[in-house]
Write a protein that binds this DNA or RNA. Structure first.
Lengths: 152, 152
DNA sequence: GTATATTAAGACTAAATACTCTTAAATATT
DNA sequence: AATATTTAAGAGTATTTAGTCTTAATATAC
């Protein structure tokens, strides 16, 4: 698995926020997010605390509180969330888990893997929360995708 | 982490075998492999049992026994070992861990990720144990790399 | 056949990750 | 001030992955 489950939960919640009114710039309760994403409320709370600490989200306690994106969904990318939760092991890690593998002392897979890894990182940096929110036509991330031709 | 530690151990042992005389086609004891790779003997034994069951290795009990490659190192690729140990979750898994993600119901990352994933898989299929054994000039995988200008 | 060398298999333990529950702190409403 | 709503934080539990240990099975050599 490339990303931890914790990280995936953080991503899903961030994209869900981005899909909300005002592009996620107003408070939504974690309860609402956890209900929609079908993730345990308490666990999601912990995950989102990491995003709050790394200032991707802002939180507010009490009635009408919740979490919101700290800045526009188009300026937060996939990689920001990944680094906040999984750290940058993805960036530095050798495919064979060999300590000390690098340009100076490449493992047998280093050259091939660093190229592929760079492509993954570039992709993660290029795609923003807004992109993902707009690209969830199949409702994978958002159980109740944005209604274009709204019903009731 | 893309590959489990178990999988990485299996890869390292396979490459080490491939680097041995006769290209790994004669028996080497697991004890020798575990000593050279500095992996616990018992744990490596378990890992290699998987490779033996999937017929990438052959084992033989008793004195002069051990494990050897079941076929030439140039005909076993990286992917063979990965699939034997980690299964093909790598091939099928959605980057966001979403069940049901696929061509028919792509998640917001599906298109980008499936392209990158294909590159990873292609790389793993293209590189053989022989390639890796030949390409370990820095001795990352093999603690005592093959001596070209042999000492003592 | 007895001792020795080796892999196979299963039970067990440890560590990492995922998840739950309880309590505290902050804010709003009345 | 009292109560309700919400996130924060910490302790605790469960599950998965990694690793260890013991015993069994198989083969060789004497």
């Amino acid at each position: 698995m490339l990303l931890s489950k914790t990280c995936i939960y953080g991503l899903r919640a961030s994209v869900l926020l981005a899909s909300k009114k005002q592009g996620g710039l107003e408070y939504t309760t974690i309860r609402e997010l956890s209900d929609e994403l079908e993730i345990s409320f308490h666990f999601l709370t912990k995950v989102l605390q990491k995003l709050t600490k790394s200032e991707l989200l802002e939180s507010y306690k009490g009635p009408n509180g919740g979490v919101k994106l700290a800045r526009d969904a188009s300026s937060i990318n996939f990689m920001d969330v990944v680094r906040s939760i999984d750290g940058d092991s993805l960036i530095h890690e050798c495919a064979l888990g060999l300590p000390g593998c690098g340009l100076l002392k490449p493992c047998p897979l280093h050259d091939q893997w660093s190229g592929l890894k760079m492509n993954i990182i570039t992709m993660m940096q290029d795609i923003t929360l807004k992109d993902m929110a707009n690209n969830d036509s199949t409702g994978h991330l958002l159980k109740n995708p944005i209604q274009i031709i709204s019903g009731k």
